[in-house]
Write a protein that binds this DNA or RNA. Sequence first.
DNA 1: CACTCGGCATGACAAATGTCAGAGGCGGAG
DNA 2: CTCCGCCTCTGACATTTGTCATGCCGAGTG
Lengths: 204, 204
Amino acid sequence: MTGVVRLLLADDEHLIRGALAALLSLEDDLVVVAEAASGPEALAMARAHQPDVAVLDLQMPGADGVKVATSLRAELPGCQVLIVTSHGRPGHLKRALAAGVRGFVPKTVSAQRLAEIIRTVHAGNRYVDPELAADAIAAGDSPLTVREAEVLELAADGAPVAEIAERAALSQGTVRNYLSSAVSKLGAENRHSAVRLARERGWV
Amino acid sequence: MTGVVRLLLADDEHLIRGALAALLSLEDDLVVVAEAASGPEALAMARAHQPDVAVLDLQMPGADGVKVATSLRAELPGCQVLIVTSHGRPGHLKRALAAGVRGFVPKTVSAQRLAEIIRTVHAGNRYVDPELAADAIAAGDSPLTVREAEVLELAADGAPVAEIAERAALSQGTVRNYLSSAVSKLGAENRHSAVRLARERGWV
DNA sequence: CACTCGGCATGACAAATGTCAGAGGCGGAG
DNA sequence: CTCCGCCTCTGACATTTGTCATGCCGAGTG
């Protein structure tokens, strides 16, 4: 019907990439035309080989899966992007969908299942792992106000309040206030874990 | 000669485990006799199938690779353990070697290379990825004193000083002192990043 | 033995952080 | 229009955290 699906595989873990290529090649209608071990390399390979579907790992050296996906959408509109990941953090899923990614699955799926999902994506449909989707929905929308998120982001690298205040053009008291409010909304113990939590949920 | 090597494969990522099993089975002298997706399951499988070599992922639900390795050494002395990991943090390597692990490699190696390493380990030799080994040596020994490390560990989950003091049976001033000393030795900005750094280097 | 050095421990003090009550503005409900 | 609720912002106050000077003790050294 749709003929053969040409695949680009990108993952920095050689072991997995090779194994994956071998397994997917067992499927008659799938063929791996290119492999890459980093974000930039994936882009270059995509330009050279014009795959139908790009299977990208979320975490890669250079540029992560979502960044590659964004570039790919612009350069090769006909190429659908499927993201595969070990760590299914809600924030990543949200970012990925916003970047035009068509599929998002954890590495816990079987190869057979992955092959099916590749076909689904190639047909123009979307696929998001139900469990990851549930997590993302459960995480919901950010309870943080604009300023709270802004201040929390400035606090991300452990900067002292004085520096945050200067960079945000606010008084130190105000900064403490926003930080405190964010910490309580997130149910965190201190600003550091608040930053971590917000990161995980994709709210900063 | 050595005959066939019977393997146990443990990795929570179904995709990778399956792919790996398929690739390693292509080697004439390797046979995968059991697979597991979690630490406890790996132990159970090992008891049931008595493999020659256990290939364990470092991060798994239940019990991590090193814990499984420790139990395995006790229960099945004839079974050599090889650890495979995505994130090669020096501390992990150190812990693993202390637990009697015979091999430690990142997932960036190729399947062919992995097969060779499995044979090396099965023959009773050790194998540690040169790059990871270099990192571990560069990280060196902990500059922290016993108490510093102890207090830093108690501070790991963001507990306030008062709680740490109580749990360590020290005055709050002393706890602050150790924390401060650890922070400066590690070149960190605050206790939280100190904890992170010490974790990365395997000093806590 | 006398001396020095480093780890362990403490409290006093200074600095950073967290918490609170409240003022001003802006938009929607009544 | 008026009121209410929310966001924004502030300074004062309380708590927590970080730094310092100091004392004690045991191990190693001349």
